[in-house]
């Protein structure tokens, strides 16, 4: 039997994390949270979450980094914005969840072969290379890197999509592909310069 302390101590807090979340773009209003719980009530995924949006707001502004970045809620959020448009204090809850997801990906806090970061990486690589997404190739690449078995399980659906002309094999590309690289390189340079 593993026994763990159930009450959080002041010493568990990470003040840097609390500062970061309240200065993130779109997240400035987190300090105004009343803990009313409307976000959790409106969230269609909260019933699957270990920490509901209301609890995440409070834990993150107090700096409980381990709990927050280890939470399943970060990966369950589908960005449906139900929390955000219903917040009485106009807190950008969805954008805060985005910020937490970015941070969790940066710090590699996810299980091995977890599909969400893999998908994000493949997606951005494809945009850099082609300027557009070809859904069939994206899905193929994600499953090759996460679960071959599930790819095989999807072959029936793949055939149906092919038959109905909804899965073109030809890659979609923009004509002026060099522009993508220049655009993305410029973003990286300005980001470095402004340290944002």
């Amino acid at each position: 039997m593993e026994l763990k302390r159930t009450v959080k101590f002041e010493a568990d807090r990470d003040p840097e994390f609390a500062r970061w979340i309240s200065h993130t773009v779109g997240g400035e209003r987190i300090r105004h949270c009343l803990q009313c719980g409307l976000c959790s009530g409106k969230c269609p995924l909260s019933l699957y979450m270990d920490y509901t949006p209301r609890r995440l707001m409070h834990l993150s502004r107090e700096g409980f980094k381990e709990e927050v970045l280890g939470s399943s809620s970060i990966w369950l959020c589908t960005a449906c914005y139900a929390c955000m448009v219903n917040c009485p204090k106009s807190i950008n809850v969805t954008h805060l969840l985005y910020a937490l997801k970015q941070r969790a990906i940066e710090e590699r806090r996810y299980p091995r072969r977890f599909a969400i970061p893999v998908m994000a990486r493949q997606f951005s690589d494809m945009v850099r290379g082609s300027g557009r997404i070809t859904e069939s190739w994206l899905i193929l690449r994600v499953f090759l890197r996460t679960s071959i078995w599930r790819l095989l399980g999807m072959s029936g659906l793949g055939l149906k999509l092919l038959r109905t002309g909804r899965m073109p094999i030809k890659r979609e590309r923009i004509q002026r592909r060099a522009e993508m690289e220049k655009l993305l390189d410029s973003v990286a340079a300005t980001r470095k310069e402004l340290a944002i």
Partner: peptide
């Protein structure tokens, strides 16, 4: 003319700044 991917929900969750640049093109 020659539109590109908007970045969608996926890009937004890894790199927001870049996704604004993509959309603004």
């Amino acid at each position: 003319d020659d539109w590109n991917c908007c970045g969608a929900t996926t890009y937004m969750s890894v790199d927001e700044l870049t996704s604004y640049a993509l959309a603004s093109r």
